[in-house]
Design a binder for these strands. Sequence first.
DNA 1: TCCTTTTTGTATCGATCAATACATAAATAA
DNA 2: TTATTTATGTATTGATCGATACAAAAAGGA
Lengths: 208, 208
Amino acid sequence: MSSRGRPRTFSREEALRSAMEIFWDKGFDNTSLADLTRVMGLNPPSLYAAFGSKAKLFLEAVDLYGRTDGAGIWEFLDNAPTAKEAVHDLLKRSAENFTQWDEPRGCMVVLSAPQMEGGEPAVCDGLKERRLEKQVALQSRLERGVAEGDLPEGTDCDAVAAYVTAIQHGMSIHARDGASRQTLMAIADCCAAGWDAMVAGVTTKAQG
Amino acid sequence: MSSRGRPRTFSREEALRSAMEIFWDKGFDNTSLADLTRVMGLNPPSLYAAFGSKAKLFLEAVDLYGRTDGAGIWEFLDNAPTAKEAVHDLLKRSAENFTQWDEPRGCMVVLSAPQMEGGEPAVCDGLKERRLEKQVALQSRLERGVAEGDLPEGTDCDAVAAYVTAIQHGMSIHARDGASRQTLMAIADCCAAGWDAMVAGVTTKAQG
DNA sequence: TCCTTTTTGTATCGATCAATACATAAATAA
DNA sequence: TTATTTATGTATTGATCGATACAAAAAGGA
């Protein structure tokens, strides 16, 4: 098809992965084009021809993160037998994932560009959208739990989803601050230990 | 005493407050010296003579934040009759504080420079230290709760403190993403609703 | 008054930022 | 071969970054 012209001498996927790693580690602002071209092993014109701009490259890197390193966290969400197990599993996987020895600590989507003002709007909005997306997925899983009877009728799934994502986002901050895997696991266990009383307490109507 | 020389024509405190507000809003990286001199109403030489550098100005701004806008959150921590009330109050105050109409949303200490790599080390370390400081204060309050009998013997105060700060840090992310005060309050209520079962569940030894 | 000290405003520093111009190289199509 | 298309390496663009040099201005001390 489009095999006309000189073929590129680098792997687009490998270069993208290198970009993802440094963006994940240093964030969008603190990663310069000089950093990117160095770790990706190519010159600026090749980068721009292949990815368009720094912001577009970042968004592609975030997408790759969501498909690879960040995907495992959410793998068991829909397969867990109950909402409670789904959430506890989600947080335990997060604790593990955020403290891998060979990866930057914490979640790229939470840590790599938190400011909503003054930054590249496409970057801020893209990350915000991904955070919201996961929260919606979690809320849907909780609603399924209500429908299947493992969560009380009238459970405020919107509130519980916000609560769980808050814990998970906070775990990213802790991870970046150097918290141990054990500490993050303890946080997940705290959530699990209080779960039944918690969901009973935030229901809007009394449960039988 | 040192009233020799031409007196400065600006209020150091007012200029510092202006710097705090824009740092809080845009973060350390996304705030330029041009931004600072504009909102502070002074020229670069005056800024450097008064504050030393951008990083030192930022650290002073964070200190001001801790003494003013961010102080109210922790006001009731030591005065609350029980650890449970102290934590619930802490999170409710956070929900209010993070959604003030006339202030940037969320906590400056959590949001204004999350990367630990690639940024100004003094800035990253200063913020990390402040986060740890508050977590230690919270842990001490929990240990007091154990000593005073309103928390079970053997409560893992280290884990619970990490859990609560994770929730609070996550609330900052939510606030920056546009979550309503009501949503943040609901998160605080989730924590409170599960509290008793949670502290009972993470104790290291069985409680009587 | 004259000297010293400190602040002020203007103008600018070298470094780095993200992004390109340009000519050459390497492939396909005719 | 010749023309076309795409990628590459070198060099550099204008803009912005954080930080200063410099001289005039405004105070106290002698």
